[in-house]
């Protein structure tokens, strides 16, 4: 069986680190890439994070919240650490770390580390299974669509699905 307890996902995005930070933490952006939905986040240690569901997720039977989190560390625009729980599984919170570093060429490196030693079902979902249409894109797809949005200004056609 595949061990997904620690996942590392890295991507280069041709955008300033500040813009990547904004895209991760403001609803203006979160609705236009990945799974979509508003985000509410209190960017200080102990602050709450709620990633809300889209209308489509609600028709699939989900409640108001897709992901619930607590801010562990917020260092704009370079580091964001969260205790992160998927609302669709009853599992202990996992640890999600975004490291955002802009290089001299202007490219920004985003490295997402997700540690989920006690949340195997969540781990499987966020790793992605390639079935994009069924919502199985996971982090690789989410990050690819973030890159597309920030580099082209266009949301991916499946955003919010």
């Amino acid at each position: 069986m595949t061990d997904l307890s620690t996942q590392v996902h890295g991507i280069y995005i041709d955008a300033p680190a500040e813009k990547v930070w904004e895209a991760l933490t403001s609803s203006e952006y979160t609705n236009r890439y990945g799974y979509g939905g508003d985000i509410e986040i209190d960017l200080r240690p102990g602050g709450q994070m709620r990633h809300l569901t889209t209308d489509q997720m609600k028709t699939m039977g989900m409640g108001d919240v897709a992901v619930l989190g607590t801010v562990v560390e917020a260092e704009p625009p370079n580091k964001l650490v969260l205790d992160w729980s998927a609302a669709w599984h009853d599992e202990p919170p996992s640890r999600l770390t975004y490291e955002i570093t802009q290089g001299p060429s202007g490219l920004t490196r985003v490295t997402l580390t997700h540690e989920l030693p006690e949340s195997p079902k969540t781990a499987q979902d966020v790793a992605g299974n390639g079935k994009i249409e069924e919502g199985g894109g996971g982090w690789p797809w989410e990050l690819a669509s973030l890159k597309t949005l920030l580099e082209t200004g266009k949301p991916m056609t499946t955003a919010g699905a």
């Binding site: 620690t6 996942q7 590392v8 996902h9 890295g10 991507i11 790793a127 992605g128 390639g130 982090w139 690789p140 797809w141 990050l143 690819a144 890159k147």
Partner: peptide
């Protein structure tokens, strides 16, 4: 660690 993201982009 394996980084699956470039494979996603190629895909």
């Amino acid at each position: 660690y394996l980084n699956p993201v470039p494979i996603r982009l190629i895909h």
